[in-house]
Every structure is written in structure tokens, then in C-alpha cells.
Design a protein around this nucleic acid. Structure first.
Length: 340
DNA sequence: CTTCCACAGGAAGAAGAGGAAA
DNA sequence: TTTCCTCTTCTTCCTGTGGAAG
């Protein structure tokens, strides 16, 4: 039933975009200087999750490279690469200059190395850039004359609030590309496009695609996840096509699958914390720490737990309600996911 | 109103890891 | 091998805030 599995993966970049032509045009316009051997001003993509920011950025740069193959593109996801070192390293890796660089190479040397690679222009896409903990990396990259930046984040105000003054003033100029949530029709069209490429003809109906689009409430990532999971389930059960009950079962899958993946990425102590919050549902910090110490042999300190918790809040695994005294942590309820 | 308490989160540095150089 | 270097992670210490208790 599944003809081409790659099309349903998260990092798939389609060769045609559906419903985002204005955004593509705006972004490629801002990158135009690169065609004339000049550097482009920083470009920003803002919008909630699952609206195609990453996809459009990659797509636009793929297009650019067709016109100007000398341009190197480095894609860095700041969820994983959140230190100055890791960002610089990822960029070097993307342009193939990481030979003889190891984890204790001084950051300044990484920067120096990057400065030497100015024979070709580099476009650095920093995805989820609001997760970056050391904005010095932005400052570094901006200082390099052959590096153009494409920054992807949820909200402009929050992003700029996290910058220090030096970075903020430098990045104030630049193109903003804003992405709105997909409507059900748009998302249905996107899903139809993917289903067409990924699945055998006729194994999912337009009505079913619409159901998926509806359940995903504007989030293409979730929508595609549901489609993928429905197709897999149907295949496992040896069906010719996606039936309505298979689809029904696949809908909750997609969101929990994303969460499960994140939980698996947690280290042991973080998972204990997560489990406690999951067990209790809602818990006050003091009780949480006590319970944690009860469950673990060799407990980390309080301060470390607080770091873990903020990280987990960032990951959208748990939610912190209230500030300071009287704050509680709780599991995010699925109904609340999807609104911003 | 003042003092106390619970909590968040910044800063600095100690500990540990692992590769390079000697 | 040992020593050195720098990274990351965790801890220690500390400040600020706002509700509760006195």
C-alpha cells in the first residue's frame, strides 16, 4: 500500500509546494543578493508549529541552489544544537570541514575555521532558534561576511526578547516571513498531495483526508503523522485501503507518537520526574522533589531538577502553571495542544 | 507592615570525559 | 603512558519575587 515511505517522513521536502507561494516568493526575494555574489540580510520565518516554516525554508534554498550551486546550505536544529560550540560545529559539518575537530576543540578555533571557509557563500538555517541558549553563536555567524542567516522561530517578540542587545540590534533589519495556520481545505490539499505520492492510488478517500486535516487542527506535521500511521496500520492488517476504523485509531497515535519520541530522549532522572508528574497529574514543586528523592537511589540536587523541569516545559512534555510560589507542574492535556 | 518562606533561575566553578600532545 | 586542554553537566551559592505568617 505504501509506495514511497519517505514522502510521509517529517523531514521530507516536496518538489512542489502547495499553498505557500507568497511565503516562498518573499523568502527567495530576500535571498536574491546571493545570486549576485552578495550576502543576504537575515531572513526570519515566524509562525506556530506545523505550518511549513522548516519545509519552506529548505525548499526555497533547494531552489536557490539550483540557480546558484556554489551556495552551501547548513541546516541546524537548535533543539539539539543549543550551545555556541554545537552550532558552529554543525555548520562546519554541513560544509564538510570537521575533519580533526573533536569535542574539546576550542570554540574560537571552530570560529576561525569557519572564517577560513569563505571561498563559497553559506546560508545557515537555524531552526527553532528560540531554543538557542547561547546567542553568541548568532553574533559569530553574523560577523562572518560570507554567511547569510535564515532564522526560524514561533514568535518574533519572544525571540528578540531572548537576544542580548548586541545581537538584537544587528538582526533588527531583515525580512520577516509570517506563516499562518493552515485551514482545513489547505491542509486537505497538502495531505492529498502527499498521499498521492506516497500511497497506491485509491487507498484513501478525500473524505478521510478531510477528517485527518480536521483532527490535525492546522498542524501539517500532525496531519502527515496521522496519514502515515493510518497507512501503516492498514498495511499491517493486510487491508487494501484505509478503513474508517483504522483511521479512527490512528488519530490519537500521531500526537502521542511525537510525545513518546521526546520522552525517550530524556535521561533517566528526567524521566523519573516526568513519570511522577504523569502519575499524579498535577503536583507542587516541593512534593515533586520529595517524591523524586524517594524513587531514586542517587538523587540530583534541587537546582538540577529545576533545570530538568524547565527543559521539559520547553519540550512541551509538561506544563508549569503559575509563577513562583504556588506554581504547579502538570501533564499537558491533548485538547490544549494545537492552540497557541 | 515586617519578616519569613518557597520557589525560579543566574553565575561561577568543580567534576568528569575524552582526544591531543608530549 | 601521563599530562594538558576544553567541552559539558551538575552543584554551590546567591538574588529576586510574591504570598503567608506574625
Amino acid at each position: 500500500m505504501i509506495v514511497d515511505d519517505r514522502v510521509l517522513r517529517e523531514d521530507f521536502v516536496p518538489s512542489e509546494v502547495v499553498h505557500r507561494h507568497d511565503e516562498v516568493n518573499l523568502l527567495s526575494e530576500s535571498l536574491e543578493p546571493l545570486l549576485y555574489g552578495r550576502r543576504a540580510d537575515p531572513a526570519f520565518c515566524f509562525g506556530p508549529t506545523g505550518v511549513g516554516k522548516t519545509c519552506i525554508a529548505r525548499y526555497t534554498l533547494a531552489q536557490l541552489r539550483e540557480q546558484e550551486p556554489a551556495v552551501e546550505v547548513a541546516y541546524v536544529n537548535c533543539w539539539q544544537e543549543y550551545t555556541r560550540f554545537r552550532v558552529l560545529y554543525s555548520v562546519l559539518e554541513a560544509v564538510g570541514r570537521t575533519i580533526d575537530i573533536h569535542r574539546s576543540t576550542p570554540k574560537d578555533e571552530l570560529f576561525g575555521r569557519l572564517r577560513e571557509t569563505d571561498d563559497r557563500p553559506i546560508v545557515v538555517i537555524l531552526d527553532e532558534v528560540d531554543q538557542l541558549e547561547e546567542t553568541a553563536a548568532l553574533y559569530d555567524l553574523h560577523r562572518l561576511g560570507h554567511v547569510s542567516l535564515v532564522l526560524i522561530a514561533n514568535r518574533e517578540e519572544e525571540l528578540f526578547a531572548s537576544f542580548d542587545d548586541r545581537v538584537r540590534s544587528r538582526l533588527r533589519a531583515g525580512t520577516r516571513v509570517r506563516f499562518d495556520r493552515y485551514g482545513t481545505d489547505e491542509l486537505t490539499a497538502i495531505l492529498a498531495e502527499r498521499a498521492d505520492k506516497a500511497l497506491e492510488p485509491g487507498c484513501i478517500s478525500g473524505e478521510q483526508l478531510r477528517t485527518i486535516a480536521d483532527a490535525a487542527s492546522g498542524d501539517a506535521r500532525v496531519g502527515i503523522g496521522i496519514l502515515r500511521s493510518a497507512a501503516r496500520r492498514a498495511t499491517q492488517q493486510g487491508r487494501e485501503r484505509v478503513t474508517d476504523d483504522v483511521l479512527e485509531a490512528a488519530i490519537p497515535d500521531a500526537r502521542t507518537a511525537i510525545r513518546r519520541k521526546t520522552v525517550e530522549g530524556l535521561i533517566e532522572h528526567q524521566r523519573v520526574l516526568y513519570d511522577i508528574v504523569a502519575d499524579v497529574g498535577e503536583v507542587e514543586p516541593g512534593d515533586l522533589y520529595d517524591e523524586y528523592e524517594r524513587r531514586v537511589d542517587d538523587p540530583k540536587t534541587n537546582r538540577t531538577l529545576r533545570n530538568y523541569l524547565t527543559k521539559m516545559v520547553h519540550y512541551d512534555l509538561i506544563e508549569a502553571v503559575g509563577e513562583r510560589r504556588g506554581r504547579t507542574y502538570r501533564i499537558i492535556d491533548d485538547d490544549a495542544v494545537g492552540r497557541e
